[in-house]
């Protein structure tokens, strides 16, 4: 039986620990600064400068999210379990009446709250400025984007905790985290594009469903697809993603399901590994 008060206690401790971390504030500051800068200058590739409408601004901010938010999530979560093991606080924590599932869930929720606040604070300030210049009716679109960005953070946080649950040291944990960040953000899409270019898109096995399926394996791409599917004006700004406008890819139910899976699958896997982990 899960004890919610125990989970809340651990979440609170995790939250307080992380918000005392100066590096998190620096990252939020960078996120805010860049979001403001990108909102203004980020539309240059589309031949525009200044605040050029909510859709194009969100399209630019999405690129920032894809680089920065997974990084913040990995920084927050990579040592959540291994850190306690290395610092020697884990044995006392395990000796308490809290179960391992409660400990894991508490950590996850605490960190999820931190990343939600970080994303909200990072985009909220620029959002206010942007919306002052925009129609208030766009506020829903902008909040949908923030919500999607928070989900992106939580999904990568879930992966970070999974890494932390099966590694034995901070070094191993950060190494795998950096590799995954690099792979998902820089390599994965390049590989897909590489395949398309190499086969000139004519290979029998390459079709929208296959490419779409591959995109769902990367949470950063799921974020892109998810956000685009909810903000229609964005479709025109994305290359590979905008090609895949078939029913399969932009089926919202599927995207919501996959996005949720990207949060819960790593989370439950990590919880199971931590439950089985012995020292």
């Amino acid at each position: 039986m899960i004890n919610l008060r125990v989970i809340l206690t651990i979440s609170k401790k995790e939250f307080i620990n992380r918000i005392k971390n100066i590096s998190l504030f620096i990252l939020i500051f960078i996120l805010t600064l860049l979001s403001l800068a990108i909102s203004y200058f980020g539309t240059s590739p589309f031949g525009l400068t200044g605040f050029s409408g909510i859709d194009v601004t969100i399209a630019s901010l999405m690129s920032l999210s894809i680089y920065l938010i997974p990084l913040i999530a990995f920084i927050l979560g990579y040592d959540s379990i291994t850190g306690e093991e290395e610092d020697g606080t884990m044995p006392l924590l395990l000796s308490s009446s809290a179960s391992r599932s409660e400990i894991y869930l508490g950590k996850f929720i605490g960190l999820a709250v931190v990343i939600s606040i970080a994303v909200f604070a990072g985009y909220g300030i620029s959002g206010i400025i942007i919306l002052l210049k925009e129609n208030a009716g766009h506020i829903i679109g902008y909040f949908s984007f923030i919500f999607s960005s928070i989900l992106l953070g939580i999904s990568f946080l879930s992966i970070a905790l999974l890494i932390s649950s099966f590694t034995r040291s901070r070094t191993a944990s950060i190494t795998i985290s950096v590799f995954l960040w690099f792979f998902y953000i820089f390599i994965y899409d390049l590989l897909l594009i590489g395949i398309l270019v190499a086969t000139k898109g004519k290979a029998a096995f390459i079709n929208n469903a296959v490419i779409g399926g591959f995109l769902l394996v990367n949470p950063a791409d799921v974020y892109r697809l998810f956000t685009i599917s909810f903000i229609h004006g964005l479709k025109g700004y994305y290359g590979l993603t905008s090609i895949l406008t078939g029913k399969f890819i932009l089926n919202r139910v599927l995207l919501i399901f996959v996005y949720i899976m990207w949060i819960f699958l790593p989370m439950f896997s990590g919880m199971f590994i931590f439950y089985k982990k012995r020292y």
Binding site: R5, K20, G88, L92
Partner: peptide
């Protein structure tokens, strides 16, 4: 090896472990 969360006080540690043990 006894280690606690360094940023908490002794009393906060007691509260934390108290809460974990109901």
């Amino acid at each position: 090896i006894v280690n606690f969360y360094g940023n908490l006080s002794g009393f906060e540690i007691m509260q934390f472990f108290g809460n974990l043990n109901n």
